[in-house]
């Protein structure tokens, strides 16, 4: 396998991880901690919104993020021909 191909795969991988971790940061540290008091003025299903992100929403997003990563990486592995058999 060529070094170039590996390099391209690695760059694309890093871009994907950076994007997903940005969302990870925004929902947990952003909505659940830094903006929590401001968001509490809105309501969702009986919850103050900031409180909901802190005790519910952030965790749902975490699960979704990992599965998005799983599927995108499987596609990416094939595209760059580095997948396992």
């Amino acid at each position: 396998m060529s070094k170039e191909r590996e390099g391209a795969y690695w760059k694309e991988n890093l871009r994907l991880v950076a994007a997903l971790l940005a969302i990870w940061f925004i929902v947990s540290y952003g909505c659940g901690i830094l903006l929590v008091d401001w968001l509490d003025q809105f309501h969702i299903a009986g919850f103050p919104l900031g409180f909901w992100f802190a005790q519910q929403g952030s965790m749902y997003v975490f699960v979704v993020l990992i599965w998005v990563y799983v599927f995108r990486m499987n596609t990416m592995d094939r595209k760059h021909d580095v997948h396992e058999d």
């Binding site: 901690i33 005790q55 952030s58 965790m59 975490f62 990563y69």
Partner: peptide
């Protein structure tokens, strides 16, 4: 909340 997010969010880091 520190326990809820703190003890789940680490799995995103682990996975990626």
């Amino acid at each position: 909340t520190v326990y809820l997010m703190g003890w789940t969010g680490g799995y995103v880091l682990l996975a990626m």
